[in-house]
Design a protein around this nucleic acid. Structure first.
Lengths: 117, 117
DNA sequence: AATATAGTTGAACGATTGCTCAACTATTCT
DNA sequence: AGAATAGTTGAGCAATCGTTCAACTATATT
């Protein structure tokens, strides 16, 4: 028996593996990619992003729209902010959020395409 | 003080909220979307999908490529299978996995675009 | 039939996640 | 200055997630 901390396979298809190895990105790229997609991997955050496609809105608006507390919304907006998916502007007591760029819309639309076969 | 189980805001911008309400999808659509993107929200699964862009590979190949156990890989492939992101064919002892369709590549490429500004 | 390898599975574990709650800051209004 | 509203924040908690481990099935080899 071989070491099972990693794969202990005997008959690896080296052509395929070496081919893939050549096109694989660096670890950090995969972490960055998955961190980005994590933002789309929660219903609340997707709703926020989808809602902001329509128009900019303040935290209250979004909380009312989704039927959630301002705290919950604010926490999620912070995550989206940290990944540059939304931007914001302050006006009096309000903080208006909007999409940072149109990649967000493209990514959501691509997902919708996949879901609708 | 109002009920804080949902938003207790007094000054909601009704135009924006009603506008968004009209274009919002059903709850199930957002759950489906987030469930799909969850598959891209983990480095291991993104690596698997990215590797399979190159060529079909068996569980052993993928385990060797990523330096992980067959068990870990198999668990993740099952998740990808359940969401129709990968398909497989059996050949002797081997199970060869490949991408189910080209949406996967498009979604990954879109993410890479966003990361590289 | 016995052995070895490929792959799957379910339980268990620690780590991460998303919300709540309470306390806080900031701006506005009286 | 004091009260009210908008928004943020950190701790805490339940739920979810990703891996490991051990046991299992299935195919191939001798």
């Amino acid at each position: 028996m071989k070491d099972e901390t990693v794969c202990a396979c005997e008959q690896v298809h080296e052509d395929a593996v070496n081919g893939a190895k050549r096109t694989m990105l660096e670890e950090n790229d995969y972490i960055a990619l998955s961190t980005l997609y994590k933002m789309f991997a929660d219903p609340t955050r997707i709703k926020l992003l989808h809602a902001l496609e329509q128009s900019e809105m303040c935290v209250c608006d979004l909380a009312a729209l989704l039927g959630m507390t301002k705290s919950a919304i604010s926490h999620q907006l912070k995550a989206l902010r940290l990944l540059d998916l939304v931007k914001f502007r302050k006006e009096g007591q309000n903080v208006f959020y909007s999409l940072a760029d149109d990649h967000v819309k493209l990514i959501i639309d691509m997902g919708l395409e996949h879901i609708n076969e």
